[in-house]
Simulated assay, not measured.
Amino acid sequence: MHKFKDLEIWKRSRLFCSQIYSMTSKFPDSEKLGLTNQLGRASVSIPSNIAEGSSRKSNKDFSRFLEMTLGSAYEIETQILIAYDLRFISELELNDLDKELTEIIKMISKFKSTLKI
């Protein structure tokens, strides 16, 4: 069992989630049930799945939860590109979010590879 609050991937993904919420607060009201909701749910699922997975008794179970976090990360990657296409975010915002998300994905993948299954 891992202490999720001590994991850098959890800390970083939690901050990233806050960035997503800040960004989507500027989206048009018509997107509240669309892209805003999707991005919020996907960003919350990353630190949430890390926390839930860390409570599992086996590394195999934890690894499965980390796999779900990667799925959510790639979902966010697609959604921020769509937000950019729709001109909801600037190129600079896109690049900043993409850079941070790429780092989180690398960290999750590396951590997952260290788990003895």
Rank of each mutant, 00 (worst) to 15 (best):
M1P: 14
H2D: 15
K3E: 15
K5Q: 15
K5S: 15
K11D: 09
K11S: 09
R12Y: 10
R12E: 15
R12D: 15
R12S: 15
S13V: 05
R14V: 07
F16E: 07
Q19D: 15
I20D: 06
Y21K: 11
Y21N: 07
Y21D: 10
S22I: 11
S22G: 12
M23C: 12
T24K: 03
F27C: 05
P28A: 12
S30A: 11
E31D: 08
E31R: 10
E31N: 02
L33S: 05
L33K: 03
L35Y: 04
L35N: 11
L35S: 05
T36N: 11
T36Y: 08
T36R: 13
N37Y: 11
N37D: 15
L39K: 08
G40Q: 13
R41C: 02
R41L: 03
S43N: 02
S43Y: 03
S43L: 01
V44Y: 12
V44S: 14
I46L: 03
I46M: 05
N49E: 08
N49Y: 04
I50W: 05
I50E: 10
A51D: 07
A51M: 14
G53Q: 07
S55H: 00
S55G: 15
R56T: 01
K57I: 11
S58Q: 11
S58G: 02
N59Q: 07
K60A: 15
K60C: 02
D61S: 09
D61K: 10
S63C: 07
S63N: 13
S63P: 00
R64A: 09
F65L: 02
F65P: 04
L66I: 02
E67M: 03
M68D: 00
M68N: 06
M68W: 00
M68V: 07
T69S: 14
T69L: 06
G71T: 04
G71P: 03
G71C: 04
A73H: 04
A73G: 05
A73I: 06
E75I: 09
I76Q: 08
I76F: 02
I76K: 12
I76H: 04
E77P: 01
E77Q: 14
T78M: 08
Q79S: 05
Q79V: 02
Q79M: 11
I80R: 00
I80T: 02
I80Q: 06
I80K: 03
L81C: 10
I82Y: 04
I82R: 03
I82Q: 09
A83K: 01
A83M: 05
Y84Q: 12
Y84P: 01
Y84K: 10
D85A: 14
F88K: 08
S90F: 09
L92S: 13
L94Y: 15
N95G: 13
N95K: 14
D96Y: 00
L97K: 06
D98E: 10
L101T: 01
L101Y: 01
L101K: 04
T102P: 00
I104C: 10
I105G: 04
I108M: 02
S109R: 14
S109N: 08
S109P: 00
S109F: 09
K110E: 14
K110F: 08
K112R: 13
K112H: 08
S113D: 10
T114F: 06
L115F: 07
L115E: 08
L115W: 04
K116N: 11
